[in-house]
Design a protein around this nucleic acid. Sequence first.
DNA 1: ATCGTATATACGTTTAAACGTATATTATCT
DNA 2: AGATAATATACGTTTAAACGTATATACGAT
Lengths: 117, 117
Amino acid sequence: MNIPISQFFQLLSDDTRLRSLLLIQQEGELCVCELIHALNIIQPKVSRHLAALRDAGIVVDRRQGQWIYYRLHPELPDWASQVIDTMVAEAVTHEPFIHDLSALAEMPNRPDAACCA
Amino acid sequence: MNIPISQFFQLLSDDTRLRSLLLIQQEGELCVCELIHALNIIQPKVSRHLAALRDAGIVVDRRQGQWIYYRLHPELPDWASQVIDTMVAEAVTHEPFIHDLSALAEMPNRPDAACCA
DNA sequence: ATCGTATATACGTTTAAACGTATATTATCT
DNA sequence: AGATAATATACGTTTAAACGTATATACGAT
């Protein structure tokens, strides 16, 4: 898992990808429909940006029934994890991340990965 | 000095800007001609990218005679400094940064900011 | 087998970045 | 004042991202 540094930053430079990634890091694992709800962004847009993160090796996905869950790549380089952690710590005090998190918490019929894995 | 997070990453996503910024952080302060030499990139390109960093508040410049020196903005937010420090630590072990640093060290007639400020 | 839900991908268009070349600006030296 | 050096900016072009809409795929339930 060797991500060119400038590619990594290029991926974090888009708001949809950045918000997705921070939510994923904060929550551990999220499926596409949770991100759609939390971010209030249409499905193809969310999927497209998640695919970019996956293709670069920043996240991995796993299918569970009809849902596809994304989490950080387990072998992310240290520097990348550090940057993501730094940004989560920063983002929790600012919009739009605060709102994204509460929208996620209030999502109705949220699928629960833990309950049925 | 309040830089939107995604704009910050957008700026670091270009190789010329990233290499410039890491060199500036490593060296404390550099003028344009030093960067031109270290990076082996034509002058208008270097200047253009430095202007982008300056306009975003990531670096500040000062004129000293015919040279213009760039350094990190003294009031950069903590998260931004942390990210830059993380990346310098990473980059020193990889190309092209290693080469950039040695090209700078071997620059002939290198202006010395300290000697005549 | 069909239907509904979740997700991914393809396509054509629009928006934004980056580029090289040319020119302008500001300082130094003669 | 004129010449040279360092740097910045403007301009037109090319390259690359992002977008919305439409469609394809995979699964679960009936």
